[in-house]
Nucleic acid binder design. Structure first.
Lengths: 341, 341
DNA sequence: TTGTAGGCGTTATCAG
DNA sequence: CTGATAACGCCTACAA
């Protein structure tokens, strides 16, 4: 049952390895008879090419690397889904690594993937990452690279993103439309681009509606967790009891927030209207159902890997490839937590 | 910046490839001076061994394959986490594939992994799988295999499981202790072992308490989804309005169930007490908070990969390895949905 | 139409 | 202590 090689097939058939190889790869210069004999025997013996040898010969691994900050987040596990699927369709397998939002880990993992000689890398950056050396390194080595969701603006590679500013603006505008006058923002960490953009969107919406921006109403997550949501809920009630609307960086944190509000009997949305981001599954079943911004996670994964494969194939054919940035649409989803009818 | 080989280092230093190789691998029979020269130059040139060549030579890929039914499920994304992490610690990378609960896909994916020549395979079976040919195939080829959570009892390989029967019995006993007299069970599909075992546990608990088992009170999920939960809620209310307790195959379905109960105003746990399984995050924030059985997902992943690595290493050292089955403890978590104090 | 030879980059054996 | 040589399995000019 063990690993059949071209050599063994050749010996059994009394022909050369070359001919066997050619027959199996449908080269034109093999007689019909030989070809059939080879193919039949190969099938009978369950021949499969030794991928190690093929890799070495072709310098391709038919493997791509995927680095994400956190498998457990709804948005990312959704994306993994589509990436794996699309990769498989195209004959690629996916090695997944998790940076845990740590740049140190991310650096190591990039190195692992480079050493593994994956054919391309998909990455969503950790909160600590900018366009650092490890990422430049990938590009310098001409390894196809696509960033998605959490990107480094400066990087000269393909990117798949949403318009975080616009999406945030719409979300906050919605709160204002519901009559909110004093809107707080629970933002993501200082560094990542999407946290920055959502924060800018928040400010722009206020500005547009002539509401003066108050930095004291901005709370900054460190870890973007459920627990932080609870913590900020307490703080807000304490420091700004008259806040009547909150825009939250992501649904998970909003869930923490609302859990606390539920517990102490604050009425949502009547007293405080809340909107999250990313449309986690939990938001549609939580009480109250949580308003949010839907990100096309599945599509984002698919587009990202398609871009990557495009670049891989261009390189193979020696066609020049220019990085593209693709922006996907988001969708405001209004549910109970912000709807004041 | 491109790929440095042993040959290049050897040429620059005017020594043989062999010596370079030995120096880098700390063979004892290289002079200190040569070793240093080699290591210094290698570092300067950022030499990393070509993994394709290493794979071919050593017949190892330092890669393991992981097949799971569904990335999106809380339990599995949790497990992915620990597997990736533990693998990385030991110098292995993980290729992840998703069977979508389809045996057809699973078969293909096993084939892909075998052809890729991964060093070992971790699998949690699809709902449609038993100990079928594709799994036997793995074992026949002497590729180390560990099954976890959803296993095939007959397979002669290592397994990591929980005691589903016992856990289910405890859950149902708890409902009985809360005064439930007529307990329904929403079970998983017919085939998978854990659905069967939980069902058996349910029956045993009834038996032990002299409650006659009524097959009409058993509802069988096809896809184990939130939507099915809603559907069964309707059916149960319709067909057995006097049911006062429900044991559900998994929290996700329980969430569907409870959403419907909330909507139509059925009081949980007073009218109907509900307990789920797997301790999804959502269960601790849902209203009412959902009682459940905690599975040690993180530990399960860690134990599974450790077993796999143990087998891989035994094989390398030609030490015989006997498959082990490890059973992990579960934990009954009582929350609002079943607590009738 | 078939086969020979060389090479991908590394490692292991064995001789010097 | 060092190096020549072969082998891992496959692919592809080139020759016959």
């Amino acid at each position: 049952m063990n690993n059949i090689t071209l050599k063994e097939i050749a010996e059994k058939l009394g022909i050369s390895i070359t001919t066997v190889s050619k027959a199996l790869k449908n080269y034109p210069d093999v007689s019909e008879k030989t070809r059939k004999a080879v193919i039949d025997l190969a099938q009978e013996l369950h021949y499969t090419p030794n991928s190690f040898a093929v890799n070495l010969r072709t310098k391709e691994s038919k493997t791509i690397g995927l680095i994400i900050p956190e498998v457990m987040h709804h948005f990312f596990s959704n994306i993994i889904n589509s990436i794996i699927e699309e990769a498989e369709k195209n004959g690629y397998l996916v090695i997944i690594l998790q940076s845990n939002e740590s740049i140190e880990l991310e650096i190591k993992q990039v190195e692992l993937l480079i050493n593994k000689r994956v054919d391309g890398i998909l990455i969503s950056l950790s909160n600590e990452s900018n366009y650092n050396e490890h990422l430049q390194n990938i590009i310098n080595r001409k390894i196809p690279l696509v960033m998605f969701d959490k990107i480094a603006k400066l990087a000269n590679c393909s990117k798949v993103i949403i318009n975080d500013q616009k999406a945030a603006m719409n979300a906050v505008q919605h709160l204002i439309d519901q009559g909110c006058k004093k809107i707080a923002h629970i933002r993501g960490p200082e560094n990542p681009q999407n946290a920055i953009d959502r924060f800018i969107g928040y400010k722009k919406a206020l500005e547009k509606n002539n509401i003066t921006f108050d930095p004291n109403l901005v709370y900054t997550c460190k870890n973007v967790t459920f627990e932080e949501g609870i913590e900020f809920a307490k703080q807000i009630i304490n420091e700004h009891p008259d806040v009547d609307g909150i825009f939250v960086i992501t649904d998970l944190v909003a869930v923490g927030l609302l859990s606390h509000f539920n517990e102490i009997g604050i009425k949502v949305p009547q007293q405080i209207a809340v909107i999250g981001f990313s449309n986690w599954f939990i938001s549609q079943v939580f009480t109250p159902k949580i308003s949010t911004v839907d990100q096309p996670s599945h599509e984002m994964g698919t587009v990202a890997i398609k871009l990557l494969l495009e670049e891989i194939n261009s390189n193979k054919d020696k066609i020049p490839f220019s990085p593209k940035t693709i922006e996907l649409d988001t969708n405001l989803i209004v549910r109970e937590s912000s709807k004041r009818v």
